[in-house]
């Protein structure tokens, strides 16, 4: 059994059929890349996994740790151990860095967990550990997140996800809009998280950067999986790369 399994998932925005029978697996402990051009359906796939609506998953199943989580509300999926770091980072600009991070702990409040049993392989990081890993956030604890640079906001978004009890981290284009130097920092962070044992599904348009870190890769095009193999195989498959990734 894989950690995450998508089986023939069909997802819609209103009446437009976006994901057309997506089937994919993410194995425990790996970094799996999901690549594809702009508009291919990468974000839609992550949102379908995370229980965010829209899109609506009309058929097919998403299972996590062997449990069917299709159609569960986003908060339940998240509390069950899947964290999404979304495309535009979406840190809360009106809250301080410290408050943004603290929010990830609120989920453990009694009032929130009422009626749910939560067990995790990977407990959320402590605040101290997070600050040790991200010294720039430490320096900016009391600063409003809206005033951070793009790179810092990305770090904050990842740090926030790490503070949750996460067994699977979904990263949606974490390198987008960042300077090469900052991309390296984010890559380091992703690498470290993976080494600590958290499974990662990494979505990127920047295929070269993603393949560098990934163990395996899927390529999606027009809502369908068109390639499935190891990172090595994708690196060698020039036809696929040219046709679907433009590199």
């Amino acid at each position: 059994m894989s950690l995450l399994e998508l089986d023939d998932v069909n997802a819609y925005y209103g009446e437009s059929h976006i994901l057309r029978g997506v089937t994919m697996n993410v194995e425990e402990g790996e970094i799996c890349a999901l690549l594809g051009r702009n508009g291919a359906g990468k974000t839609t796939t992550l949102r379908s996994i995370a229980g965010a609506t829209p899109p609506n998953v009309r058929s097919g199943t998403v299972s996590f740790k062997g449990e069917d989580v299709t159609g569960k509300p986003a908060e339940d999926v998240s509390a069950g151990g899947i964290s999404l770091v979304p495309e535009e980072r979406r840190v809360f600009p009106n809250l301080t860095v410290a408050e943004n991070l603290h929010l990830a702990e609120v989920v453990n409040n009694k009032s929130n967990t009422w009626g749910r049993s939560l067990t995790f392989e990977h407990e959320g990081m402590s605040t101290e550990d997070v600050y040790a890993q991200f010294p720039r956030l430490d320096e900016r604890r009391d600063q409003q997140a809206g005033t951070l640079s793009g790179g810092e906001q990305q770090m904050l978004a990842i740090a926030r996800a790490l503070k949750q009890n996460t067994d699977l981290l979904l990263l949606d284009e974490p390198y987008e809009g960042l300077a090469p130097k900052i991309i390296e920092d984010v890559e380091d962070a992703v690498q470290r998280i993976s080494e600590d044992g958290t499974t990662i599904l990494l979505v990127e348009q920047n295929a070269a950067a993603a393949i560098k870190l990934a163990d395996r890769a899927y390529v999606v095009d027009q809502g369908q999986i068109v390639f499935d193999g190891t990172a090595e195989e994708l690196r060698e498959d020039e036809a696929t790369r040219e046709r679907y990734l433009g590199v």
Binding site: A79, P86, N94, E99, H102, A104, V107
Partner: peptide
């Protein structure tokens, strides 16, 4: 308070609050 923190965050981006595992309905 944590309640207020959730409310302030929800004012800006309710979906993101839910994606953090917080039941915002309460």
């Amino acid at each position: 308070t944590d309640f207020g923190l959730v409310v302030r965050a929800g004012t800006r981006d309710a979906e993101m609050v839910r994606l953090l595992g917080i039941k915002i309905s309460r």
